[in-house]
Write a protein that binds this DNA or RNA. Structure first.
Length: 487
RNA sequence: GGCCCCUUCAUCUAGCGGUUUAGGAUGCAGGAUUCUCAGUCCUGUCACACGGGUUCGAAUCCCGUAGGGGCUGCCA
């Protein structure tokens, strides 16, 4: 039975890199009909903040990554039989294990204060532990009385080998590891102990995480061995880098998964894109995957070892693909909140009207937010015309006024305000005025929308309605008329 | 500095000794469709970091060099 976990520390929002790790663990669990666990690594009380707990929950939810076991998180109650799932609530367990190691001589009490150790640095300025308390006699320990102490793990001689599902076999010499602290002076466990104890007691079978943990893994393996527990399978995947090739800083826009939601990206696209950062399908040349597709195709063997840069442009392309893949009704439902957020009252429009709007914009949306640009003129009157387009499309005001007049007359008597009859009117007008369709449509688009680009013209006019169309034509003619007088 | 990992078009990648004149995708450029933009379709552009080996044969294996990343906390 496969059991995987994501173990974020709630000291910030849901980072894009954490999301990738979560996704891989989740996919692997789902693919193998296993269990995916959420565990909060909040042993460092100073850095933990409940507001982050909520934000992360929202991030996971938005991405569609759900967990089978985990702490109460956001509005989700605790689930699972291996709880509690917050490390801050498992202190006694870690202490028990630490003292077990102590009794077995696999760990020892260290009375050296943090300050007293500050003098011991190697030639490059890094701290190292000189091992003062490693071989204290029982008498010496007794003498210390109630002096504060930490518990250090006694790193054994020899080598530690990782057989990683992604990295392959990696060997570390143990002598490059100091006797590391597993229990702080205040009784709190250090990350390494907590992780291992939790992975043991939660029966984690596969540890899939970023390769920034690769050099921590020997410590973990030594602890597993000392505690007499079987090792999980490790899989260290490459990190996500920013567009400059550096570690994706928390301060960068986009580091927070929810930034992408705010920018109008679909969770489907984020998941698809992030999955592709270091993984490819066995199906050659395929890049479009929904979450169910990913579950079907995901495999750890096809994760590569090299870090990948984040490329917004490719993400945007994928986002467009996913937008076009959405059923229109669904797209409409996702567009409404964005329109509302931008102050457009969608309640005055019918469901059919909104669906039709989604339909005529669907293939033009790289992001959901683009809908604002593509449809604002439906919801409010604009107060200026795009300057550049005006110069190009309306450079002959007299002509344009003539066009508009012709069109307006015909439109005024049109009873079926629909795409085909509208087109017919423009075709007729073209014939009468002896111009091409484009010569008529483009100036009119500017009059109706204030812009030179937008949805299909007849579709747009149909949705705008007769009244508004005629009104805006009049307004444009008036504007053009004034303009001729100015010159 | 030490240890570990990585290195194929600008970017994401396929490739696991001969099937490769190195394939796909994004981007970019051009064309087609045309009411704009977008979309779609087509064409083009662009890469095996470098130097040594091993081999009949190397992007693929080995060793160096260079570059990038990670770790090196009583953070996780």
């Amino acid at each position: 039975m496969v059991r995987t976990r994501i173990a974020p520390s709630p000291s910030g929002f849901l980072h894009i890199g954490t999301a990738k790790t979560a996704l891989y663990n989740w996919l692997f669990a789902r693919k193998n009909k296993g269990t995916f666990i959420l565990r909060l690594e909040d042993t460092d009380a100073e850095r933990t903040d409940e507001q982050y707990v909520h934000g992360m929950c929202e991030g996971f939810k938005w991405l569609g990554i759900d967990w089978d076991e985990g702490p109460p998180f956001g509005d989700v109650p605790e689930k699972g039989n291996y709880g509690p799932y917050r490390q801050s609530q498992r202190k006694e367990l870690y202490q028990k294990m630490a003292f077990q190691l102590l009794e077995q001589g696999k760990a020892y009490k260290c009375f050296c204060s943090k300050e007293s150790l500050e003098a011991y640095k190697d030639d490059t300025g890094n701290l190292y532990y000189p091992g003062f308390c490693r071989n204290l006699t029982p008498e010496q320990i007794c003498e210390k009385g109630n002096a504060p102490y930490v518990i250090r793990f006694r790193v054994p001689e020899g080598e530690t080998e990782i057989n990683d599902l992604i990295q392959g076999k990696v060997v570390f010499s143990n002598n490059q590891y100091d006797d590391f602290i597993i229990l702080r002076a205040n009784g709190d466990p250090v990350f390494h102990l907590a992780v291992v104890v939790d992975d043991i007691t939660m029966k984690i079978t596969h540890v899939i995480r970023g390769d920034d943990h690769l050099t921590n893994t020997p410590r973990h393996i030594m602890l597993f061995n000392a505690l007499g527990a079987p090792l999980p399978q490790y899989a260290h995947h490459p990190l996500v880098h920013d567009e400059q090739g550096r570690k994706f800083s928390k301060r960068l826009h986009g580091a927070n998964v929810l930034d992408w939601r705010d920018d109008g990206y679909l969770p489907e696209a984020i998941v698809n894109y992030v999955a592709l950062l270091g993984w490819t399908s066995e199906e050659e040349n395929r890049e479009f995957f929904t979450l169910p597709d990913l579950i079907e195709h995901f495999s750890i063997e096809r994760i590569n070892k090299s870090p990948a840069r984040f490329d917004r442009r490719k993400l945007e392309w994928l986002n467009g693909l996913h937008i076009r893949n959405l059923p229109v009704e669904e797209l409409k439902d996702r567009l409404i909140p964005i329109l509302e957020k931008n102050g457009f009252d969608t309640s005055t429009k019918s469901k059919e009207w909104l669906t039709r709007l989604a339909q005529i914009c669907q293939e033009k949306l790289p992001t959901l937010n683009r809908i604002v640009f593509l449809s604002d003129f439906f919801f409010k009157d604009f107060d200026s015309y795009e300057a550049e387009a005006e110069g190009k499309l309306w450079k002959n005001p007299e002509n344009v006024i003539l066009y508009f007049k012709t069109i307006q007359n015909k439109l005024a008597s049109l009873s079926h305000w629909e795409h085909d009859p509208l087109k017919q009117i423009f075709d007729e007008a073209c014939a009468e005025l002896n111009v091409k369709l484009g010569a008529l449509i483009n100036p009119t688009r500017l009059a109706l929308t204030g812009k030179s680009v937008g949805p299909g013209f007849f579709e747009l006019m149909e949705l705008l309605g007769k009244e508004k169309t005629l009104e805006r034509l009049s307004r444009a003619m008036e504007y053009l008329h004034n303009k001729t007088k100015e010159v």
